[in-house]
């Protein structure tokens, strides 16, 4: 799987990432970093504990991570939940959209894990 293929599968913007990180090898390094990022875990933990203030902070951080990675499809969903959680604006809507966040996270992780395994292979 090439970097551009990886981005196609996660519905990210490969050209945006290339403009930011300058090379496929640098993008690959950041994909590795992404696999170690804990923002999604923090979001899940806070959500399950119904600590929506912490959930907002985690979602906000995750949004930044995804935007940096140009994982734009996933980022849009996280952006939406972030705004619902901000200052407790619309917790019911956040709860409703949370499963989609988790689902997109899993889809992204499946592709990224496969990409990393091939590299390490």
């Amino acid at each position: 799987m090439t970097v551009s293929e990886c981005y196609a599968r996660v519905k990210g913007d490969y050209l945006e990432a290339l403009g930011r990180f300058k090379s496929d090898s640098m993008i690959a390094k950041f994909i590795m970093l992404y696999t170690q990022d804990t923002s999604l875990d923090d979001l899940k933990t806070a959500f399950y504990a119904q600590d929506y203030e912490k959930a907002f902070a985690a979602a906000h951080t995750l949004k930044g991570v995804l935007r940096n990675m140009a994982f734009n499809d996933y980022a849009m969903t996280v952006s939406e939940i972030t705004e619902y959680l901000r200052d407790g604006k619309n917790i019911p809507a956040a709860i409703e959209i949370f499963p989609m966040v988790v689902s997109k996270a899993q889809d992204t992780l499946d592709v990224v894990d496969a990409f990393v395994k091939e590299r390490e292979g």
Binding site: F21, L33, D37, S39, T61, G64, N68
Partner: peptide, 16 residues
């Protein structure tokens, strides 16, 4: 920035 990926990305962009 407390997030490693965000911090590293910012550092890389600025150093570039």
């Amino acid at each position: 920035d407390d997030n490693l990926l965000n911090r590293t990305a910012a550092q890389m962009i600025f150093e570039e």
